[in-house]
Computed example of a mutant assay.
Amino acid sequence: MKKTKLFSGLGVLALIGGILVAADHIDAPSSSGTTADIADFYGFEPSEGSDHTVFVVDLQSNVLPDLAYGTFDESILTEINIDTNNDLVEDLVIQAIPRNGRMYFFGLQPPSQTGLSGTILVDAPLGSVEISQATAITETTSDGIQLFAGPRQDAFYFDFFQFNAVIGGMAPGGFKTADEAEDTFNGANTMSIVVEVPNSLLGSTSGTNALGLTVYKAWVTTNKKQ
């Protein structure tokens, strides 16, 4: 199998499940505030009973309105890792890396190596899509995989400043009510990578969530070229 240069891991964010969300917005020191910073990772069915799964990776949580059309870093490889046998080791990987205004996707194959480092699976191209700017652009592959990459409004609702006040002991009244809370990330954007995959290509689900539903265990990593 052809391989490219080694990419070593910087950020990791995990989720388990069909309708679960993982968010941190402040990554490890090596990637916090950089183009490798993972803001959110979502996995869900696009509609109830669908036989597809959507994975959304949001990077760069500090893309503010005046920087609404940011860019992806060509030195960063983003990997969506999927465990299909419940051993918490990736069995399938979806890779995304930008080049010259397009996002190229590889995988839905076993990784060349597991863990925080990896190489691009150049022998397993999934497809590519033009990186969106003002207008959303999607591509659908012959296998029915839908691809998107570009800026999206940050979906994470969180009163960040009140949270800091509470944990810092500066808010004796505690958290604000839903009507009083402020959405700190309103108007901010992320650089988003979206892949919708037919479940037939993902194999077996590997876990059970809190609702008793069988789900895929998945996590995302960002890796920088060495």
Rank of each mutant, 00 (worst) to 15 (best):
T71H: 13
V54S: 13
G212F: 03
S30H: 08
K3I: 10
G212T: 00
D183Y: 06
F148G: 00
L121C: 08
T140E: 15
P65S: 13
K5A: 15
R102W: 00
A39T: 09
S30T: 14
R152Y: 02
D24Q: 14
E74P: 10
V129R: 11
N223H: 10
K224G: 02
P98L: 00
D58Y: 02
I145W: 02
G207E: 03
T138H: 07
S47W: 14
A134G: 04
I120L: 10
A165M: 13
L126S: 06
T221E: 08
L15G: 12
A149I: 07
G49D: 07
S132G: 08
Y42N: 11
L211P: 01
I137C: 06
P151K: 08
A68L: 10
Q113E: 15
G173P: 02
G43W: 03
I193E: 00
I97H: 04
V89S: 12
S117Q: 13
Q60R: 11
A68P: 04
V63G: 01
D143Y: 02
F72C: 06
Q153K: 11
E180L: 06
L20T: 15
L116Q: 08
V122L: 15
A68R: 15
D159T: 10
G169F: 02
N186R: 09
S8E: 15
A134S: 11
G115Y: 02
V129Y: 05
D91Y: 05
S112H: 14
T4R: 12
A171L: 07
G203H: 06
K2L: 08
Y157V: 15
G33C: 05
V12H: 15
F185S: 00
D159F: 07
I26Y: 10
T214R: 12
K3Q: 13
L10W: 04
A39E: 09
K217A: 10
G144K: 08
Q146Y: 01
Q153M: 13
V57S: 05
A188R: 11
V220I: 05
M103S: 04
A149Q: 07
S30A: 15
F158T: 02
Y69S: 05
V57C: 08
I38D: 01
Q162S: 14
A68I: 12
M103G: 03
F156Y: 15
A171G: 04
S61P: 15
L211G: 08
S204Q: 12
T190Q: 03
E139I: 03
E139Q: 14
S142P: 02
D66V: 10
Q153I: 12
L211R: 12
G101F: 01
